[in-house]
Computed example of a mutant assay.
Amino acid sequence: MIEYNNSQLKKYPRIVFIGGTSFSICSLQQLHMLKYNIIGIITNPDKYIKKNKNIVFNNKIKQYAIKNKIPILQPTNFLDTAFIETLKSWHIDIQIVVSFRILPKHIWNLPKIGTLNLHASILPNYKGPFPIHWSIINGETHTGLTTFFIKNDRIDSGNIILQKKIHIGKNETYGEVENKLKKISGDVIVKTLDQVIIKKQTHDNTSTSTSTSTSTSTSTSTSTSTSLFYARKIYNEDCRIQWQTSFVDVIYNKIRGLSPYPTAWTYLFIKNKFYRFKIFLSKKILVPHLYTIGLVTISAFEMKISAKKGFISILEGQIEGKTKMSVKNIINGIKIKTNIFVK
Score class of each variant (00 low, 15 high):
Lys151Trp: 02
Pro124Asp: 04
Leu110Gln: 11
Asn138Met: 11
Phe23Trp: 04
Met325Lys: 13
Tyr4Thr: 00
Leu87Met: 12
Pro45Asn: 03
Thr76Gly: 10
Asp156Gln: 09
Ile198Val: 15
Ser306Phe: 03
Phe78Gly: 03
Thr226Arg: 04
Thr266Gly: 02
Lys278Asp: 11
Lys164Ile: 02
Leu9Asp: 04
Lys50Asn: 14
Lys254Gln: 15
Leu31Tyr: 14
Ser22Glu: 11
Phe280Ala: 11
Trp265Gln: 05
Thr202Ala: 12
Ser246Asn: 12
Asn125Tyr: 03
Asp249His: 14
Lys165Trp: 01
Met33Pro: 05
Arg276Asn: 14
Ala65Arg: 09
Ala65Leu: 08
Ser299Arg: 12
Leu181Pro: 02
Ser219Ala: 08
Ile331Cys: 06
Gly294Ile: 00
Ser326Phe: 04
Ile340Cys: 01
Ile49Trp: 02
Thr81Cys: 07
Val327Thr: 10
His91Trp: 04
His289Ala: 11
Ile161Lys: 00
Pro129Asn: 09
Pro111Ile: 07
Leu145Val: 10
Thr216Asn: 15
Thr115Pro: 07
Ala307Val: 04
Arg276Val: 14
Ile168Val: 01
Asp249Lys: 06
Ile15Trp: 13
Ile314Glu: 02
Ile107Arg: 00
Lys233Trp: 05
Ile136Phe: 00
Ile150Ala: 13
Lys60Pro: 06
Leu116Glu: 04
Ile331Ala: 07
Thr192Met: 09
Lys283Met: 07
Gly333Tyr: 08
Gln63Val: 02
Gln195Met: 10
Arg154Lys: 10
Ile234Lys: 11
Ser217Ile: 02
Ala120Gly: 02
Ile285Met: 12
Pro45His: 01
His133Lys: 11
Thr147Asn: 06
Asp238Phe: 07
Ser326Met: 03
Phe247His: 13
Phe57Ala: 01
Asn117Asp: 05
Ile189Glu: 00
Phe341Glu: 02
Ile102Ala: 07
Pro111Met: 01
Ala120Trp: 08
Ile132Arg: 01
Ala307His: 01
Tyr235Asn: 12
Arg101Trp: 09
Leu286Asp: 01
Tyr48Thr: 03
Lys233Tyr: 08
Lys328Gly: 00
Asn272Glu: 10
Arg14Tyr: 05
Ile49Ala: 03
Leu116Pro: 05
Pro260Thr: 14
Leu28Trp: 12
Gly19Asp: 09
Ile38Glu: 08
Arg240Phe: 13
Leu79Trp: 14
Ser299Lys: 13
Gly257Ser: 00
His106Trp: 11
Ser213Phe: 15
Thr81His: 07
Ser185Tyr: 09
Glu320Asn: 13
Lys67Pro: 03
Gly321Ser: 11
Asn77Gln: 00
Asp46Tyr: 08
Val327Asn: 11
Met325Ile: 13
Asp153Glu: 14
Pro260Gly: 05
Asn37Gly: 08
Ser217Lys: 06
Thr266Glu: 08
Val196Ser: 05
Phe149Asn: 04
Gly144Asp: 07
Val16Asn: 00
Lys304Arg: 15
Phe130Ala: 15
Leu145Gln: 06
Ser27Val: 13
Ala120Phe: 11
Trp243Phe: 14
Lys164Ala: 04
Lys183Val: 08
Gly321Pro: 07
Tyr174Leu: 11
Gly321His: 14
Trp108Asn: 05
Ile84Val: 15
Arg276Gln: 14
Lys67Phe: 06
Ile42Leu: 01
Lys105Ser: 14
Phe301Thr: 08
Lys271Asn: 15
Ile84Thr: 12
Leu181Ile: 06
Thr245Glu: 13
Lys283Tyr: 03
His142Ser: 12
Met325Glu: 13
Thr141Ala: 06
